[in-house]
Design a protein around this nucleic acid. Structure first.
Length: 219
DNA sequence: CGGCCGATCAGCT
DNA sequence: GCTGATCGGCCGA
C-alpha cells in the first residue's frame, strides 16, 4: 500500500454517515483504508486505519454493552451511527471506537491500529521517546496517545467534529488485501473470543499483532 | 464502601 | 512469553 500520502488534506470532507451505518460486522472491514483525522493545538495528525475489531451488540459477551448494560461510561455506544466511543482502561490507556448501530443498538468498531501519515513529529513527541514509527499507532492505546484522543472526545460526532473525524482516501488510492481473524485481549467468554471479528491489512508491520497463523500478504 | 478487574503497553527473561 | 503499572468503573455486601 502507498505509505507516502499524495495530496493528503487537500480535500477533507468527513465520511458520510451512511458509510458508518449497518452494524459493526459490516462497518469494521469497510473502515480499513479510511483515514482518521485529528486537529489539535492547530496541528493536523492523521493516518489510515489498518486494523479494526467489531463489537456487535447486546449479545456479544465481550462487549461493554453485553446484556444491554448501559451506564454513564458506555452511554455513547447507544448513540446513532457516527458517534465516537472513547473510554479509559487499565488505569492508563484510552481506546477509540466508531459507533455504527441505530440509536439504542450498541454496536461499535474498535480502531486498533493506523498507518501514521500526517504529523509524525507530533506523534513521536506524545509517545514514548525512541518509539519506532511502526510503534507509534500499532495498538488501540498507542494510537490514542499518539493522536491525543481522550475522554474529552467521547460522544463527539465523527461526521462533523472539527477536531476528530473520519475521511475517505484520496482518489486513486489502492486497497490492500484485508484478512479476517479472531479478536484480541478478551477473556474466555463463551466462544465470543474466537469469533472472527477482527480485520487487518495483510503483511503490514504497523498492525498491533499478527493473527494466528501469520500475517503474510499473498498475491 | 471494599475489592476486583479490564477491548493495554512496555520491558524483561 | 510473562508480568507490573495504575485507576476508574462496576458490583456485591
Amino acid at each position: 500500500m502507498r505509505e507516502r500520502g499524495v495530496g493528503l488534506g487537500s480535500r477533507d470532507e468527513p465520511l458520510a454517515r451512511d458509510a458508518l451505518r449497518g452494524g459493526a460486522a459490516e462497518v469494521a472491514p469497510g473502515l480499513i483504508g479510511c483515514r482518521v483525522v485529528r486537529v489539535v493545538d492547530g496541528r493536523r495528525l492523521s493516518g489510515t486505519i489498518i486494523e479494526t475489531e467489531a463489537y456487535v451488540g447486546v449479545h456479544d459477551r465481550a462487549s461493554h454493552a453485553f446484556g444491554g448494560r448501559r451506564t454513564a461510561r458506555n452511554e455513547s455506544m447507544y448513540a446513532a451511527a457516527g458517534a465516537a466511543y472513547v473510554y479509559f482502561t487499565y488505569g492508563m490507556h484510552h481506546c477509540f471506537n466508531v459507533v455504527c448501530g441505530e440509536e439504542g443498538d450498541p454496536q461499535a468498531v474498535l480502531v486498533r491500529a493506523i498507518l501514521p501519515q500526517e504529523g509524525l513529529e507530533f506523534m513521536r513527541a506524545r509517545r514514548r521517546a525512541g518509539a519506532a514509527d511502526r510503534d507509534l499507532c500499532s495498538g488501540p492505546g498507542k494510537l490514542c496517545q499518539a493522536m491525543g484522543i481522550d475522554r474529552t472526545l467521547n460522544a463527539v460526532d465523527l461526521c462533523s467534529d472539527p477536531g476528530l473525524f473520519l475521511a475517505a482516501q484520496p482518489p486513486g488510492w489502492r486497497a490492500a488485501r484485508v484478512v479476517r481473524c479472531a479478536r484480541i485481549g478478551l477473556g474466555d467468554v463463551g466462544g465470543w473470543k474466537d469469533r472472527r471479528l477482527r480485520w487487518l491489512i495483510a503483511g503490514s508491520p504497523f498492525v498491533s499483532a499478527a493473527p494466528r497463523g501469520g500475517n503474510r500478504a499473498r498475491p
